[in-house]
Amino acid sequence: MIEIKKLSAGYRGVPVLRDLTLSFPTGKISTLIGPNGCGKSTLLKTMCALLPSISGELFFDGKPLSAFHRREFARLCAVLPQSRNIPALRAMELVAHGRYPHLSFSRNLREEDWKKVAAAMEKTGTLPLKDRLLSSLSGGERQRVYLAMTLAQDTPVLFLDEPTTYLDIGQKYEILELVKFIRDEGKTIVMVLHDLPLAFSYSDEITVLAEGRALCQGPSARVFEERIADRVFGVSSRQVTVEGKTEYLFFRAT
């Protein structure tokens, strides 16, 4: 369980988020949604300690963030950041970087580290790409390789910042199915998504942010029924059942 208490956060002392109190349950997919500039990426960055908070505190299973050592925190939370470099590395070499927080002083990967790397690549279907240069991969493949790196980090908590940007619709589903699969293994996932239909169909919990405040947090079905996203984005929505599955439609409000 990740708890946020009276958190203010932002850049260079100017708060984007004000006085937030939220909690994210263990073993679930929690998604932050909201219009551009509402502070969802800021919140995610603050939660994964990439950005220092201005006031307030974050707790991971009751332990405050400030009590964590860097490497200890890196063994608890892995992050897929929004902007990613494309270093001149082969896929497997990149994934191996995920083992860094677990390595001893000599920084050599042991046999079991390589096993974890291979397992993470197998899970994300990137094992056939292991000797390819990152620059030669497609956007979707590269995304999965980066996800494999965060999985190789072998943490109970995963933060994903816009994991589906730049991907086509098929690749988006592929990534989110993978996220679901990871959740079913017991990991806690907190992510930011732009795509509302995908956010509602794949999340257990939804948090709606607007202008630096949280409007609501709860199970995605309930948040949908309360039409909060409709109000925030100025759209209308329908829930339809296609082949026994609930899908969400968003369209322009009339």
């Binding site: 960055k45 994964c48 300690a49 990439l50 860097r70 490497r71 925190f73 890196a74 063994r75 939370c77 892995a78 992050v79 950041p81 929004q82 902007s83 990613r84 470099n85 270093p87 590395l89 990149l94 970087h97 995920g98 860094y100 927080p101 390595l103 920084r107 790196m149 980090q153 933060f159």
Partner: peptide
């Protein structure tokens, strides 16, 4: 040298792997 390797991944990734 391994810190220098991590810098390649970009600041956010490097930091989330536990280096300052």
């Amino acid at each position: 040298s391994s810190h220098a390797d991590l810098l390649r991944l970009g600041d956010d990734s490097a930091q989330s792997l536990g280096i300052n």
